[in-house]
């Protein structure tokens, strides 16, 4: 029993982190049919911006608790600026192209952003340990855990619930569901699809940046941090079923738990545990756990 508790907690914490990353990805795919590789860049930008914002705040001698606010602010600024810039400046000209071409376009954006980040922030790692250390530790099964992880889990929960509420309980959300269901019909009914695309991409970008901003205090922010999360987030989204929020949540939790159990009981296999989960899920359910039924077009 004392073994299972830490494994479960680490798994849930890691799963929460994965969910923050994959929620935006699955949302963008669900609405726009873009598998957004640049999601990794937005994650990295969020992390770098969080370091800059929170460091400026702390260096200004302001109360340390405010640095949490800075993390959120960084995510909103990055998502609110870069999201619309990418969607209006580039992607809106590309709709209707093949899915693979869209993947490549976002991959090109990713490559460009890698160098932009390097030019702006340099190659040295950035550290922001204050928000991580501030909430202190708590004890579980005799081991110390950072309370920051609880914050992460809380943020993932809040984000997930907020998305569900916005999608199913608001007028705009219901309109968006209509767009997801049938884009052409929605346009015919007078829905401004272009506006929804912009909004969706901005929200997705903000979620990616939020994932980065909340991760920044726990790691050293280095060039290339975006690469590592892309495939992870892709795996989660595919496991859950593309475009499904509930699927992303379940996929994130599944991957998180499997990974922490592997680390504990079979550390050599950690490297491919995630891909093994993905392969097994796809073999059992070819379109992921929560795949939408598709009409067969004759």
């Amino acid at each position: 029993m004392s073994n299972i508790l830490p494994v479960a907690f680490d798994g849930i914490a890691y799963g929460s982190w994965l969910f923050l990353m994959s929620a935006g990805l699955t949302l963008i795919y669900g609405v726009m049919r873009i598998l957004n590789v640049a999601h990794g860049s937005l994650y990295a930008l969020g992390a770098y911006a969080a370091c800059s914002f929170a460091s400026a705040w702390l260096n200004g001698g302001l109360p340390a608790a405010g640095s949490f606010g800075m993390l959120l602010l960084a995510a909103i600024v990055v998502g609110g600026l870069v999201g619309p810039l990418l969607e209006r400046g580039l992607l809106q000209w590309m709709y209707g192209k093949d899915e693979v071409v869209l993947v490549l376009i976002t991959y090109a954006v990713f490559l460009i952003m890698e160098d932009v980040i390097k030019l702006v922030w340099g190659v040295d790692s950035l550290l922001l340990p204050e928000p991580y250390a501030l909430p202190g530790n708590f004890s579980l099964g005799g081991l110390a855990y950072p309370a920051y992880n609880l914050l992460l889990i809380g943020m993932a929960l809040v984000t997930g619930l907020a998305l569900v509420w916005a999608l199913y309980r608001t007028r705009q959300g219901k309109l968006l569901l209509a767009v997801i269901h049938d884009r052409e019909m929605s346009m015919a009914m007078g829905i401004n699809v272009s506006r929804f695309y912009l909004a969706t991409f901005t929200v997705g970008a903000t979620l990616a940046a939020l994932g980065g901003a909340l991760t920044a205090p726990t790691v050293a922010v280095t060039p290339g941090i975006g690469v590592e999360v892309i495939v992870l987030a892709f795996a989660v989204v595919v496991i859950g079923g593309l475009g499904s929020l509930g699927g992303a949540a379940l996929g994130a939790l599944l991957v998180g738990l499997v990974r922490s159990a592997t680390v504990r009981y079979w550390p050599e296999a950690e490297l491919f545990s995630i891909y093994a989960v993905m392969a097994i899920v796809l073999i059992a359910r070819p379109k992921g756990l929560f795949a939408a039924q598709e009409a067969r077009k004759i």
Partner: peptide
Amino acid sequence: KTSQMPKLFAGQFGAEITTLLG
């Protein structure tokens, strides 16, 4: 006792640290 081998550039080692501590 244990040899942890996290993926290169994983950056986050929560579960690994738990295992080491235990």
